[in-house]
Each structure stands twice: as structure tokens, then as C-alpha cells.
Design a protein around this nucleic acid. Structure first.
Lengths: 252, 252
DNA sequence: GGCCGCCAAACTGCATGCAATTCAGGCGAT
DNA sequence: ATCGCCTGAATTGCATGCAGTTTGGCGGCC
């Protein structure tokens, strides 16, 4: 009955979970671009719930870093800076190395079959939209994390993978997913073989190459539209020169 | 002091943030033990807000893994299994290695002073309660994370550190904090010297020793959740204390 | 005496209402 | 024409109310 480590911490409560999942998916499939507005009542109306619930869902997603919540302002899909994107990938690399280290040589036949099936699905979706193949690629990594049976690891890998997904829509260009698929197959093979060092290095280089392919140009002016990027970060803490802020409330 | 207003994701909204911080602190100082009930009403009354806000705060804390939310049931302070505690420490080790790797040799004088001051504070609090010294020790690690200027890293390190704190109250015995303080000093020294490899290994062994000192294996078997869950309640037996504790303290 | 079912209290799930704040755009002054 | 101000509409912040669920205890039945 009670599925023990089902890892359901919060959001699975009910409708909140539904909205969270829907929004997450919409975000990582780029149906909702970074900076897109998410008014509470529109959301509530769309999902047939009240603002209270929509609000709660937005709170959860904000905790995951997928949306940005500014006081008294409409919530928007998060717009990570380039540096934050880079940081997210760094963290992701460490976490996923941990995943495959725990998994090397310990996969059951059923798990191997599941993984292979998923990669096949990725393959089959190659003629679909980019958005879908990006989502599938991300889900492959989450699938791996789930096999560790460590709810915490699952949560962190999921979150950071989603965040990376989000940055892909900001800083990347047409995504060549074929190599990623092959790299996924390679990782599965190394996992089955149980070569811990090999699979860790494979995962490292896989993610690193994705990051490098995705995150172009260290020049900060490379974003789609600078306007959106600057807006939410207009007041960065310390070394900010006050250009013109006559009587703006300084947010305490 | 204005500790860099970064990391404004959600909770800093207003009252929700206040409640979150208060509860977090109460939890890591073990004023609230794992399993303690957190009814929305009482919380709201205690903090002078409505259930809506208390509920939202609980949602955030649940997302961080500090409280457990069961549908239609009173929220409780999370009770991680032994395995989850171990997993949390594993993740923490990787994350904090990342922190010190980024920080090695890059600390400003001001940052070094801040760190030293904090360790001095830890030292000064040695004759205080265990709870306080545990909190201070945890905050040292969070301080380090903040110096990376990576909001994501700060968030993850904070969360996982709090979780580890939580497990300490479950599985640890009288905590000898002096060695921890010395290890903290050692880490600062290595950071200043800029020896990346050394500081990573120091941090690794520091956390590993904390984990090993704290997590005494309950049973060689894993998956014995029930035992762990019962532990905090199973006060019966040798203690002649009042077993009867039917109602939650109600904090009035 | 012990067990089972019923019932009231407690609590959560969710929607709605009201006040406060922000946003958009029009109007007048420079 | 540009900038600043002012006002109505949009939107959030929060409290409260009602309905559904769980809890815990009381009384009846075996």
C-alpha cells in the first residue's frame, strides 16, 4: 500500500501537484519561455482552481528555482543569468557523478530494460520537436537518479536538471540531440559493466559537453533580449551604482 | 548588515519567510524534534497570521525536506530514515567540496575576517547548549557557500546542511564540537593558502567524520524504517517519565 | 474486561472577499 | 516631442468561511 519511499514530500498533495507538474513540463518544453508572466488568477482559471492553489504551486516552483516571485508583482518564469546557468551545470555534474557511482554494476535487469526503452523513445522522438527531445533527454537523467532509491538525490538532480533545461532555452541554439542519445547508451553500457570510474568520467564529459554546447559566449550581452534579463536583476546587492532611483522603495 | 540580498527565490516574500526562518531554526536547534506536530492553526496563532500563510510556510519547508506533509493530516517535522541521512551526507560532501574548490585562494580579507569571527563565535559558544553550537557549526558551512556568490549552491548547501542537522538530533549522541571547530580553522587556513586539493580533502574528511560520528548504524539491515520512525516516540521503558503525551503541547 | 462502531472535535483543502500595491496609458506641462 | 503625474484597471497579500477528512474518545455489545 504505502509505497514507502515514494518521495512525495509536498506537492503531491493534490491539485497543487498537478499544476506544478504541468508548469514544469511547459517550462522545460519551452512552451513557457523565461520571463513569461504567470498571473495567479489566469493559472487558477486555466486549471479550474482558485488563486490560493495556483499561488501555492507558484511557491513550490519558486522554491525549485523555476519561477521568480517578486513581492506584489506577477510571477514570471525564471531567467537565470549566464553565471547561474554555469553554476547549475557544475552542481549537476557533481550530483550525477554521485548517481552513477552508486549505480555502477548494481542495476537490475528490469532497470536496464527501462533505461534502454527510454533511450529508444528518445531515438524515436528525434523527428519530433526539439522541445520533446530535450525533455526526454532530461528525463533520462532523472530516471537514473530515481534508480538510486535516494529521494533526496532524486529531488536535487531533478531540480537542477530542470534548471539546466531552462537555461538551454535561453542560451542554446538548435540542439543536436543525436550525440546525447549515443552518450546515454554509452553510460548505460558502462553502468552495466560496472566500471565505476569509467561511468563517472563518461557522465562528467557528457554533461560537460552539453553545457559547453549550450552555454555559448561568455560575453554577457549574448542573451535573447537583454531587457528581460536586466529587469529582474536590476537591483543587485552591494556594488551597485545608483543611476537613478529617486524615490523607489528600496525593498527594505 | 546586509548579507547580499541574493537568493531571493520565494520565502522572503514576507511573513512566510519569517515563519520559515523561525521554524528552520527551531528545528535545527532541536526545539522541535522530528515528529513534532505542526498544526496550521497553532502556527498561525503563534505568529499572528492566518492559516493560509502558515500553510504556505509549511509548503516551503516541506519542499526543503524539513517537514513532512501528509494529505489531510497534521504536518510534522520530518523524520528521515537512517539511509536518507546517509544519502544527505553523501550529497553534502560533494556539494561542499565544490564550494571549497571554488573558494580556494580566492577569499578576500574581509571574508577571511568574517570566517574567523564566526569560528571564534563557535568557540565562545562552547559552554552554551549543544543546540547552539550545532547551529553555529552549520552556519559556518552556509557562510562558506554564500561566499561562492552562487545562489544555487547556497540554496542546496543550506538545505542539505539543515537536513543533516535534523538527522543529528535523531541519530547522534553528545556532540563533541571542539574537533569540529579545529577542523573549521584548518579549512580556513587551507583556503587562504589556496591549496585546492588539500582543502577539498579536508572538507571531505571533516564532513565524513561528522557523519560517522553522528550516524551510528541502527541495524545492519536497511529498510527498517519502522524502527527509525518509532525511535523518537519509543520513550517507554527505562525512563519513568510521563509516557502519556496525548496532546501536542499547544504552546500557549 | 476487551473489542467495535458511532460521534463530536480538530484539522486540513479550498474558494472567495477585501485591502493594498503595482501597472498602463492618457493628459498636461515643459 | 519628451517627461512627469495622475487615475482606473489589474493583480497580489492575506484573512476568513465552509466542506470534507481524520482523530480520539465514549458507550454499547460480545
Amino acid at each position: 500500500m504505502a509505497p514507502r519511499s515514494a518521495g512525495k514530500t509536498a506537492e503531491s498533495s493534490d491539485k497543487v501537484g498537478v499544476i506544478c507538474r504541468a508548469l514544469r513540463r511547459a517550462i522545460i518544453e519551452q512552451a513557457l519561455e523565461p520571463g513569461a508572466k504567470l498571473p495567479e488568477d489566469s493559472l487558477g482559471e486555466r486549471f479550474g482552481v482558485s488563486r490560493t492553489i495556483a499561488r501555492h504551486a507558484l511557491g513550490q516552483l519558486a522554491a525549485e528555482g523555476l519561477v521568480e516571485l517578486r513581492r506584489n508583482r506577477i510571477a514570471v518564469v525564471a531567467t537565470p543569468s549566464w553565471q547561474e546557468a554555469r553554476d547549475a551545470f557544475d552542481i549537476r555534474i557533481e550530483l550525477e557523478r554521485l548517481v552513477v557511482r552508486q549505480l555502477a554494476g548494481k542495476l537490475t535487469k528490469a532497470q536496464i530494460a527501462t533505461l534502454n526503452a527510454h533511450v529508444d523513445a528518445e531515438d524515436g522522438a528525434r523527428d519530433g520537436t526539439d522541445a520533446v527531445s530535450i525533455r526526454l533527454a532530461t528525463e533520462f537523467h532523472i530516471l537514473l537518479a530515481q534508480m538510486t532509491n535516494s529521494p533526496i538525490l532524486v529531488r536535487y538532480v531533478s531540480e537542477v536538471a530542470y534548471r539546466c533545461c531552462l537555461t538551454l532555452s535561453l542560451y542554446s541554439r538548435p540542439h543536436s540531440s543525436e550525440c546525447a542519445i549515443n552518450e546515454h547508451r554509452g553510460i548505460i553500457a558502462a553502468l552495466v559493466k560496472g566500471d565505476e570510474a569509467k561511468v563517472m568520467s563518461l557522465m562528467h564529459s557528457h554533461l560537460d559537453s552539453v553545457a559547453n554546447r549550450a552555454l555559448v559566449a561568455p560575453t554577457p550581452q549574448r542573451g535573447r533580449d537583454l531587457l528581460d534579463i536586466l529587469a529582474p536583476y536590476a537591483d543587485e546587492g552591494e556594488s551597485e551604482r545608483v543611476v537613478k532611483m529617486p524615490k523607489v522603495v528600496r525593498a527594505r
